[in-house]
Nucleic acid binder design. Structure first.
Lengths: 241, 241
DNA sequence: CGTCACCTTGACTGTAATCAAACATGGTGG
DNA sequence: CCACCATGTTTGATTACAGTCAAGGTGACG
């Protein structure tokens, strides 16, 4: 099983006893939208997606959570997302009273820490809004890769358990469009695949990626999309390749 | 000058002395992105938009703020948005130390109130992400109208100082698309314009609006878009109408 | 070795963007 | 008060980006 590896600080020191450990299989639901928010979660290993569903099944992933990340904190009494394990995942769980209890000594965070956690989520959501509202498909994919690369501390090989479909639902695209953007980046030598698996990515040109992500890319970058297909000459059947 | 009228509770009682009043003309910048966040703001009258810009000028409006709304609170030291008055606007201003000061007596909010303010912003941003990532243009416009209608307490006439361009930049669309969606809703008798101004809207069918906003609308609703144009018969010049 | 889930690519379609033009509104100054 | 102008809105024609539908390829795993 592929695994995302992060090197983040886990639970605040001295508070370890307040957390219990749980294990979820790939695809398992950790909590559901609108369910009572009785616990908060911190990832020990693995990865989690949180998302909302529309009645007709359209899905919007709001975040991917990696080792060290805390999720499931709600100011209200219920969860506003569903959370699922993307792969075999271990999480530390603490009761809600460990966050919002009156006795600070029994809490895992100070008021200030709690505020920072929520403010950080807000900032990420605001960036996500800009991405979805005003950036093109290649820009979104570049921004996503850059973000993942940074969160995983720019490893040699980006090992990626996140499916194309999940990336698409995070970026407001389809899995085919995500694949096409990856292929475009590969053709431009911004990234390549390590070995045969398309889940292991080597990022060659982070500067180019940043350029694309921020809309600073040259106009031609987007054109490459279609120009590849419209090359002159007779069409070749699939067998000919 | 048209004015948005809200009937919200202003500053917490007993804390009035901590706020000063300011006035901004239409289009005036209240604060800029990346500027030091030395003050927080509450709207007394008028309306404010907060937005981010991409280097090439694309704009994403994150929120419209109406009377009673508080904005400009930052956990960090700088603003993450630009804020501009949409029309002649009066705001109450308090220094940053009134929010994050150590002495609760000198602060305008309790820790709990502050957390709720930020958590509410986060919830709105998360809904915005779903809207931008997974909803169609007509759904976005319906959701926007419903939201505004609710925030203004479902008045007889929705008086609207927000330009089509601003709505578009909030919904991740163009102003033409927003106009087309309004026209579609008018043709379906969901709303109509009051008087000659297209800035005064009467909402006739809130249930239908809610249906459209949540993706529960019938499949034909979206089709009306194009079917109007493709009706048989000779084309009429504009003068003929 | 076969199956299943996932990924890639191609062909075509459709929604919303773009480009363009006419019209409306509100403010200004003669 | 009206003519004029700038700004905003509406509608139409066309384009383009991303979605949909479809088929084949590939890797992981039993």
């Amino acid at each position: 099983m592929l695994e995302i590896i992060g090197s983040h600080t886990l639970v605040p020191t001295g508070k370890e006893a307040l957390w219990k450990i749980f294990r979820y299989r790939r695809g398992a639901e950790i909590f559901g939208e609108a369910e009572p928010a009785d616990y908060i979660y911190q990832i020990k290993s693995g990865a989690v997606r949180t998302f909302k569903l529309l009645p007709d099944g359209r899905r919007q992933i709001s975040s991917f959570h990696l080792p060290g990340d805390i999720f499931g904190i709600e100011n209200g009494s219920t969860h506003r997302f569903t959370a699922e394990a993307i792969l075999e995942t271990k999480v530390l769980i603490a009761g809600r009273e460990r966050v919002f209890g009156d006795d600070q000594e029994m809490c895992v965070f100070s008021n200030r820490e709690l505020l920072k956690l929520i403010a950080d989520s807000l900032e990420r959501a605001e960036i996500h809004v800009l991405l979805l509202g005003r950036q093109s498909a290649p820009e979104r994919v570049a921004a996503f890769l850059l973000d993942m690369d940074q969160r995983l501390r720019s490893p040699e090989i980006l090992v990626f358990s996140i499916l194309r479909r999940d990336i698409a639902d995070y970026l407001g695209l389809t899995h085919e469009t995500v694949t096409r953007c990856f292929s475009m980046l590969r053709d431009q030598r911004v990234l390549s695949y390590s070995g045969v698996s398309h889940r292991q990515i080597v990022v060659h040109d982070r500067a180019k990626l940043a350029q694309l992500a921020n809309g600073h890319g040259s106009k031609d970058d987007a054109k490459l999309w279609y120009s590849n297909k419209k090359s002159p000459g007779p069409l070749r059947s699939i067998k000919d390749r």
